[in-house]
Amino acid sequence: MSHEGKPYRFDPGSLCMELLTTGGPGAFARYEVLHEPADLVRWVERSRLPAGLELTVTEEALADARTLRDALFLLAADRAHGRPLQARQLAVVNAAAAKAPLAARIEPTGARAWVPGATGTRLLATVARDAVELFTGPYAERIRECGAHNCCLLFVDTSRPGRRRWCAMEHCGNREKARAHRARRVGGE
């Protein structure tokens, strides 16, 4: 939702970056939405993971999800601003990635399904492995923060030219372009 209460589509570009929309460290804790295990299950249902995942999440896994999310948030912000990645956050991601991830299977109908027994820990391993791929892959240098003056959303620029500046054009992009247009008109009068 925008500041005006209007819905808009925000695509952060990867599974691990989607987790950042659930809150964050420091001042971003006020946006926390992972209060109980069911909240993490709801996040999965809205995520880019294929549908049909029956997930069991414990309180411990929920706390681990917030810890992983906060580490990813700080790593993405550091990458977006050209700062070195911090060992403490890398250790959190690497520890989660070292665990067994979610597993998919093929049903007799040819449809994709999830192996039974999916847990919060396996979900976090999957998210952490996605982060390892992102931070070590071709899009590592395309992790960005929205260019609007009052938006801190982080995303991966997966556009072909690699020039995405806004969390969403219909939200911050339009607002910032209108602000720049007004400034030019005032300056030109």
Rank of each mutant, 00 (worst) to 15 (best):
S47A: 09
A97M: 04
L34T: 04
G120M: 05
L19R: 03
A113E: 07
L53N: 10
L49M: 07
A65L: 11
R42W: 06
T58A: 11
T136I: 04
D130Y: 01
T56F: 14
L123Y: 05
R112G: 13
V93T: 09
P50C: 13
A111M: 07
A128K: 04
E54C: 08
P7W: 08
G110Q: 07
E60V: 14
H81L: 08
G23C: 11
P7Y: 02
R142P: 04
G82T: 00
K6R: 14
V44M: 09
A128P: 08
E54Y: 07
L124N: 06
A71M: 06
E145K: 07
L75I: 14
L68C: 10
S2L: 10
P37M: 12
E45G: 05
G24D: 10
H81G: 11
A61S: 15
D70W: 01
A131W: 03
R48Y: 00
P108F: 07
A118W: 01
A100P: 04
R46C: 09
L90Y: 06
A63L: 12
I106K: 10
G26S: 13
A98R: 11
E18H: 00
R9G: 00
L49E: 10
P37H: 12
E133C: 01
L72P: 02
P138A: 15
A98P: 04
E141G: 15
R122G: 15
A77C: 01
L75Y: 03
P138S: 14
G24R: 07
P101H: 03
L90V: 12
T136Y: 01
L68Y: 13
R46T: 11
A80V: 13
R69I: 03
Y8T: 00
S2M: 06
A71H: 08
L62G: 05
L85K: 01
Y139E: 03
D64L: 06
P138L: 10
T136R: 03
T58K: 08
E18S: 04
A118P: 01
A27S: 13
H81V: 01
L134H: 10
V115H: 11
P108Q: 11
A87C: 00
G120Y: 02
L90Q: 13
L20Y: 08
E145W: 00
S2Y: 00
G5R: 09
A96S: 11
P25C: 05
Y31R: 15
H35M: 05
G23E: 12
E145A: 14
T136P: 00
W43S: 08
D11A: 00
E45W: 05
R88C: 02
A65C: 11
H81P: 00
R69V: 04
A61C: 02
I143F: 04
T119L: 12
W114K: 10
E32N: 14
L19V: 07
R88D: 14
L68K: 09
A96I: 06
V33P: 01
R66W: 03
R112L: 15
A98S: 15
A96R: 13
V33C: 14
T67R: 15
T58E: 07
P37F: 13
L34I: 04
L40V: 08
A103N: 03
C16L: 02
T126N: 05
M1F: 02
E32P: 03
A96F: 02
A104Y: 06
